[in-house]
């Protein structure tokens, strides 16, 4: 086990370094002097410019600059936003909200997706199955901002069931609608995975044995079929948690959820390049770390994984 963890962590390091390098390289390649932007239309004093360049290591070669940036990241320094607030402080304020939204979405998509997938798989080729497949195909085709606006319009404006934007403090009740929108993206995938897995499991010998022993559907379906069909689904749900944490930019922006995604969304809208980059870096790191943790958790849960290289 310890060897597996070590191997998996070591494997993550080049990817971590590679991604930060890639992002930093893109920023470095950005045309124009970032310092000039600080001065607006005025021509800066060359001496001041020189001092600032020295302070921010802008006169060093690319690799040296990258080294400063990388060591900053490992010391928890992700830079500051345009308003002067350190990125880490913004994160501390916004990340809990994003986590709550992601957990809610994960629960919604997990419960609904597995239920629909189970019924579809048991009734393969029947009306419920084909309509569930059609609905999931439709949901995949709708871009998330379209779903978000539709939800806002139908449930927020026409029916008045929910508020179109999230209030201050982001109460759970306000997060339900955005969580449904967020959940709709992976819903189809979970339905399909569960369905395929249920279809495969229900024809296996042990299910026939269970029925042969005289067990009723009420026991065979949840205990024998569902439990054994859930392995690929839980794997998917795990990796999807990382996606939900970083993929909520558009949804959070539209519903005004005060999370990490909205902060990024607003920085993009205001054209704050450096803030965007530091947030993207943080989100990519979060995504990688969450994936790593989930991989390790699986190795704890399922011993087979440890031996598969």
């Amino acid at each position: 086990m310890a060897r597996y963890i070590l191997w998996r962590v070591l494997q993550a390091i080049p990817v971590l370094i590679g991604t930060t390098f890639l992002i930093y390289f893109m920023v470095f390649a950005m045309p124009g002097n970032p310092l000039l932007a600080l001065f607006g239309d005025r021509t800066p004093n060359p001496a001041l410019l020189e001092r600032l360049e020295e302070q921010y290591h802008l006169n060093e070669p690319f690799l040296v600059q990258y080294w400063y940036y990388l060591s900053g990241i490992f010391q928890g320094d992700f830079g500051t936003s345009f308003t002067g607030e350190p990125t880490t402080e913004i994160l501390a304020r916004t990340f809990p909200v994003t986590i709550r939204l992601a957990v809610l979405a994960l629960i919604i998509q997990g419960v609904l997706g597995i239920l629909v997938g189970l019924v579809s798989g048991l009734r393969k080729g029947k009306f419920f199955d084909s309509s569930a497949l059609a609905v999931s195909l439709l949901l995949i085709s709708l871009p998330i901002f379209v779903i978000a606006f539709l939800a806002q319009y139908v449930f927020g404006i026409e029916l008045g069931w929910a508020r179109t934007t999230v209030g201050s403090g982001a109460p759970w009740a306000d997060l339900i609608l955005p969580a449904f929108v967020l959940a709709s993206v992976s819903f189809a995938q979970i339905v399909r995975l569960t369905r395929a897995s249920v279809i495969e499991t229900k024809s296996l010998d042990f299910v026939r044995t269970a029925y042969g022993k005289g067990l009723g559907r009420n026991r065979v379906v949840p205990v024998h079929i569902l439990r054994n069909s859930l392995i690929p689904v839980t794997t998917y749900l795990g990796t999807d948690f990382g996606v939900l944490l970083v993929g909520a930019t558009v949804t959070e922006g539209i519903f005004n959820v005060p999370g990490v995604g909205r902060t990024l969304f607003q920085a993009i809208l205001r054209g704050e390049g450096p803030t965007v980059v530091s947030f993207v870096t943080v989100m990519v790191l979060i995504y990688l770390v969450v994936n790593l943790v989930i991989d390790l958790l699986y190795a704890v849960l399922d011993p087979r994984i440890r031996y598969v290289k």
Partner: peptide, 25 residues
């Protein structure tokens, strides 16, 4: 494969956001 992993592990809307902010002109 490792290079592919690097490009793959950046969620691609976020990556495109960075590229497009860099190339905003």
């Amino acid at each position: 494969s490792r290079i592919g992993d690097i490009f793959f592990s950046i969620p691609y809307i976020l990556a495109a956001v960075v590229v497009m902010s860099v190339l905003s002109a």
